[in-house]
Structures are given as C-alpha cells and as structure tokens.
Simulated assay, not measured.
Amino acid sequence: MTMPPPPPPAQPYPVAPPLRPEDEKLWATLTHLSGIFLSFVGALVVYLVLRDRGPFIRAHSAAALNFQLTVLIAAFVCIPLSFIGIGFLLLLAVGVYALVIEIVAAVKASQGQWYTPPLSIRFVS
C-alpha cells in the first residue's frame, strides 16, 4: 500500500497585488505629510504595510521614514542643548526645516517624481 503524496504547503497569506500608479502617488504623498502630524509612526506603518506593493511607494516610504528618524535624532540632540540656551533655537530650526522638506517631498511625490530628502541618514532602504 502506497501513501498518496502530501498536499503542497498552503501560502501563509495571500500576496497583495501591486498598487496602481495613481494609488502609489497618493500613498507616497500621504506618507510624507504624515510626518507633520505623526512623526515617524505614519511613515513606519506605510513602509511596513505597503513596501512590497510597488517601487515608488517603497522608495518614498523609506525616504520619509529615514528623514523622520533623522529629525527625531536631531530633536533629541537639541533637548540637552536647551539647558545652555542654544537648543531652543536649534529645535526651532529643525522643526522649520522638517516642515519645509516634508512639504517639498509631498509635492514631488504627488507629481510622480522620485525624491530623497537632503541631510537624511539612511536607516532603511
């Protein structure tokens, strides 16, 4: 008596289809704008959920996450410096710079252009 072969292993979860180009642009724009309100959390969620759905959203969500983590580190450096007075000015400068770069990145993403924010440490790719 021979045993029938075992069934093939089931997929652990269904593979999501790629996003349409206009959806990728929308999510990339929202990822950059989420940094204004949610810091790095919005970019992290989009990166983890949508990174495999297209190259455009992967690049923009990674760029937004890297930029937000860089801004967070800069803010943490400014906090101890506020005890000697200069930290407040530096923290204000970091905040204005982050706001401007996030808006520029969101505009570039909405136009379908690839963009990497300047002065950003690359943590994820």
Results as ranks from 00 to 15, higher is better:
63 A>M: 08
1 M>P: 07
34 S>T: 15
38 L>G: 01
81 L>S: 03
20 R>A: 14
80 P>D: 03
99 L>R: 05
8 P>F: 08
118 P>N: 10
35 G>W: 10
2 T>M: 04
106 A>P: 12
113 Q>L: 14
92 L>Q: 03
53 R>S: 08
71 V>S: 00
99 L>H: 03
43 A>R: 07
6 P>C: 06
1 M>E: 11
74 A>L: 15
35 G>Q: 09
52 D>T: 12
18 P>Y: 13
99 L>T: 10
125 S>N: 14
29 T>C: 15
3 M>R: 11
100 V>L: 06
47 Y>K: 07
62 A>Y: 01
50 L>A: 10
97 Y>P: 03
63 A>Q: 09
56 F>Y: 12
123 F>A: 00
104 V>M: 15
50 L>M: 02
34 S>I: 13
107 V>G: 05
99 L>P: 00
42 G>D: 09
72 L>K: 01
63 A>N: 14
28 A>H: 07
21 P>K: 08
4 P>Q: 05
49 V>Y: 10
8 P>D: 05
32 H>L: 15
38 L>N: 01
28 A>E: 14
12 P>Q: 07
77 V>I: 15
38 L>A: 15
22 E>K: 11
10 A>H: 07
95 G>R: 06
29 T>M: 15
57 I>T: 13
85 G>W: 10
38 L>Q: 04
108 K>C: 05
42 G>F: 05
125 S>A: 12
82 S>C: 01
26 L>E: 11
31 T>R: 04
37 F>S: 07
60 H>Y: 08
115 Y>P: 02
92 L>T: 12
4 P>D: 02
27 W>S: 00
122 R>D: 09
85 G>N: 14
100 V>A: 02
76 F>W: 15
74 A>P: 06
24 E>I: 07
40 F>L: 09
86 I>E: 03
